[in-house]
Computed example of a mutant assay.
Amino acid sequence: MRIRPLLLGTAVALLASACGSTVPGVPGPAPSTGGASSSSKVTIPHSSVGDDFTPGATNQDPAKKIQGIEIHDYATRDHVMTPQRVAYDQAPPFGGRHDAEWAACNGVTYKKAVRTEHMVHALEHGAVWITYNPDKITGDDLAVLAAKVDGQPYSVMSPYPGLDHPVSLQSWGHRLKLDDPTDQRVDQFIKSLRQNPYTYPEPGATCDNPSFDQDNPPPFDPSAPGPDAMPAGS
Rank of each mutant, 00 (worst) to 15 (best):
D221R: 05
L178T: 05
V108W: 03
S223A: 13
G226I: 13
T116C: 02
N133M: 02
Q60C: 05
E101W: 06
P197L: 00
L193C: 05
T43I: 12
H174C: 14
T182E: 12
A16Q: 14
G139Q: 00
M1I: 15
I71C: 10
L15Q: 15
D183M: 07
K41L: 12
S21M: 09
C105R: 06
S192K: 04
D213R: 05
A103D: 04
Y154Q: 11
A91E: 13
S155W: 00
V86C: 07
R185Y: 01
V144A: 09
G173P: 09
T116H: 00
N196A: 00
D208I: 13
T22D: 09
S32F: 04
S32I: 07
I137D: 03
E101R: 06
A146C: 08
T131H: 09
L8Y: 12
L163K: 04
S158W: 06
A122S: 10
H72N: 05
S192E: 01
N209H: 07
D179M: 11
Q84R: 13
V23T: 13
K65P: 03
V80P: 06
D99Y: 00
R175M: 11
R4S: 12
G204W: 00
A224R: 13
I137N: 05
D215V: 13
S17N: 13
A232Y: 14
Q84M: 14
V49P: 03
R97Y: 09
H125P: 10
E70K: 11
E101D: 10
G226D: 08
V120F: 04
A87D: 10
S158F: 01
M1C: 14
P153V: 07
L15F: 15
L169C: 03
D179T: 14
A16D: 13
V80Q: 01
I71A: 13
Q67I: 06
T109Y: 11
P29C: 06
P93H: 02
N59W: 00
V26M: 08
G9Y: 11
H174G: 06
G25H: 00
D221C: 08
N209P: 02
G139A: 03
E117V: 01
T206S: 14
I71R: 15
S192Y: 03
A87C: 09
P219K: 07
L7P: 11
G162I: 05
A100H: 08
F220S: 04
P210M: 04
I130G: 04
K177T: 15
K111M: 12
D78E: 15
S171E: 05
G233E: 09
T199N: 10
P62L: 03
E70H: 14
V86K: 04
T206C: 12
Y160G: 08
D61N: 10
D215W: 05
K136Q: 15
T76K: 13
W129N: 00
H98D: 06
T182L: 11
F94L: 08
V186P: 00
L193F: 04
N106M: 08
R194F: 07
